[in-house]
Design a protein around this nucleic acid. Structure first.
Length: 423
RNA sequence: GGGGAGAUACCAAAGUGGCCAACUGGGGCAGACUGUAAAUCUGCUGACGUAAGUCUUCGUAGGUUCGAAUCCUGCUCUCCCCA
């Protein structure tokens, strides 16, 4: 399988250096992607470069996942409109461990495979560098005017950029040189926002060692309206089950628009071309069945979580979004109810005073942050309890409304559920 | 080193003594329509309060004033020009 061709039809290729394809066709090649540990978990935006590595391996090449323990200490200016605060050391190390653990899951590291994946951390080779040594041996190879031409720097010239973030590309560039020297790694991949940083690397390898290395990038995903990809109601969609429950994760994919679904199924699944084309055709014939969304959600949830967690998410979705009438909900036995609600936010209450006011109660247990907000929501008709709309804010709650005498299933808008359990 | 400009709510950006909890746009949330879609339309978007209203907010610390986001001073940060 030709890697570059594969990326092309999947819509995963934005830029590629001339000669990259020849190199890949010539021999098994090492290629790397860097992940800076800016959070304890990767999010679905990072899934794009992860897929690059997966396809790279599937095409017979050897993927290197680089965790940016060192680069993460400095801060990448790419795509940032302002200087960020540096993460402290303990946070960074915790994040690093989390990211490493996740990366291991996506690639084949089994030692018997000739193209087994490799995991490295640039902190390992950057930490022993002295500042002077780095300046003398590597900083000399790159001119300031070259560094200034990068978009990531240009965009910050008016609003300000520290020397620290300005230097980021040198550190990342050195990574490439290091991997080239130590592993004969010849390709760096990433999102298109990384193009500037990556080419600084290829340039350093060329000027310092006279080596020829290559780069390719994937387009930055945006929603059809141009907004950033990867956020859903209330924030990022994380790969960690603790930070984004598998249910929410599944729901995110199930909710993508038709347009996005057609693009995403090529990007985020390993399904082959005929399979995908058939699915797309079938979906277009009967869009309301949302076949594409279902399949996409299945593939990605199974990849990131597991088959079992996927199945739980499907069951929960069926109950919450099916013909979920109030009576249907009451008929569920307690175990099923709890299983269904596993992935949704949960709040504990110390007991329910008979006749307690809805607004006061929900804010008290922490389901909502502000009474004003909740009142507005109710006035708009957006609050449901046990699948029935709440008409007025002053309504009182009765103990008889509780499911199994201790649960209250709330819903904000069409799809945001929460469960309150009362002891 | 010298001179100039600036810091406003999630972001962008008005406001230059009371009419400002702060125009507007984006984002976000909700409603209608639908397919848990897109597009469109509508409402909301500091906290508390049914409301009248009260409280906290315009980089930061003080000051002037009956009254400040708006005026003055110190501090922090940013940008531009000259050297």
């Amino acid at each position: 399988m030709n890697f570059i061709e594969e990326l092309k039809w999947r819509g995963l290729l934005q830029d590629v250096t001339p000669g990259a394809e020849e190199q890949l066709n010539k021999e098994m090649t090492l290629g790397y992607v860097g992940f800076d540990p800016t959070a304890e978990s990767l999010h679905i935006g990072n899934l794009v470069p992860v897929m690059l590595l997966k396809h790279f391996q599937a095409c017979g090449h050897r993927p290197v996942a680089l965790v940016g323990g060192a680069t993460g200490m400095v801060g990448d200016p790419s795509g940032k409109s302002a200087e960020r605060n540096l993460l402290d050391e303990p946070t960074l190390r915790r994040n690093q461990a989390g990211v490493e653990r996740q990366l291991r899951k996506f690639l084949d590291f089994s030692p018997e495979a000739p193209n087994a994946a490799v995991l490295v951390n640039n902190y390992d080779w950057m930490r022993q560098f002295s500042f002077l040594e780095f300046l003398r041996d590597y900083g000399k190879a790159i001119t300031v005017s070259y560094m200034m031409t990068k978009d990531s720097v240009q965009n910050r010239l008016d609003t300000g950029i520290s020397f620290t973030e300005f230097s980021y590309q040198l550190i990342q560039g050195y990574d490439f040189l290091h991997l080239y020297r130590s592993l004969d790694c010849r390709l760096q991949m990433g999102g298109s926002d990384q193009w500037g940083n990556i080419t600084t690397g290829t340039e350093m390898v060329r000027r310092i060692d006279g080596g020829q290395v290559h780069a390719c990038t994937a387009p930055l995903l945006t929603k059809p309206d141009g907004r950033k990809f990867g956020k859903s109601e209330g924030g990022n969609v994380w790969l960690s089950a603790e930070m984004t429950t598998p249910y929410k994760f599944y729901q995110f994919w199930l909710n993508v628009s038709d347009e996005e679904a057609e693009r995403h199924i090529r990007i985020f699944t390993m399904l082959d071309r005929p399979t995908i084309e058939a699915l797309v055709a079938e979906h277009r014939a009967d869009p309301q069945a949302r076949l594409l969304q279902r399949r996409l959600a299945e593939e990605v949830t199974v990849l990131v979580h597991s088959r079992q967690e996927y199945e739980t998410a499907v069951e929960a979705s069926a109950v919450l979004f099916g013909k979920g009438t109030a009576e249907g909900l009451r008929r569920l036995d307690e175990a099923t109810l709890l299983a269904v609600c596993e992935g949704i936010p949960r709040h504990e209450a110390q007991g329910l005073a008979e006749g307690a006011n809805v607004v006061d109660f929900l804010v008290e247990v922490g389901a909502f942050a502000s009474k004003g907000e909740l009142r507005r929501l109710i006035a708009n008709g957006g609050l449901y309890l046990n699948q029935e709309p709440v008409q007025e804010a002053a309504r009182a709650l009765a103990g008889s409304e509780l499911l199994h005498g201790k649960y209250l299933l709330g819903r904000k808008g069409k799809k945001n559920y929460f469960l309150i359990s009362i002891s």
